[in-house]
């Protein structure tokens, strides 16, 4: 997998969206649903087409509880992992409702496993 400009943009967007949702969820106490909804609406209004979907998918990772993403650094790692998963699975099951959530769940579980290994 080569890293071209668009893939780097996706990775940065995923990291930004996940960490923003995590901040709204835990730091500002909005809760996961409102935090993700807010990030999704902002993304849909200000980011074009497919990139908005990527931002929304990444925001699902930021909905994780503190048991899964205990700090902002781990949330950044979660964003990076969901970005990689999104790039790797762009064509898989397109048009199925919940595809983004499944991608996010996979990324959240991988992040949890990695943080568990690091300790």
């Amino acid at each position: 997998m080569t890293l071209d400009k668009s893939k780097i943009r996706i990775l940065f967007l995923a990291i930004g969206s996940t960490s923003l949702t995590w901040m709204l969820n835990h730091h500002f106490g909005l809760g996961p649903i409102v935090a993700s909804g807010l990030v999704g609406v902002i993304a849909a209004l200000f980011i074009p087409g497919a990139l908005a979907g990527i931002a929304y998918t990444s925001s699902f990772v930021g909905m994780s509880s503190l048991a899964v993403l205990p700090s902002l650094i781990i949330a950044l790692l979660g964003g990076l992992i969901v970005g990689i998963v999104i790039i790797a699975t762009t064509e898989v099951y397109a048009g199925i409702g919940g595809k983004g959530g499944t991608t996010a769940a996979a990324a959240a579980l991988v992040t949890k496993a990695i943080t568990g290994l690091i300790g």
Binding site: F60, M63, V68, A104
Partner: peptide, 18 residues
């Protein structure tokens, strides 16, 4: 099941669609 894991709700939605 998997409470607190981000993306759990989307996974339920995807399973329902399938």
């Amino acid at each position: 099941s998997y409470a607190g894991v981000g993306g759990r709700l989307g996974t339920i939605a995807a399973i329902s669609c399938f």
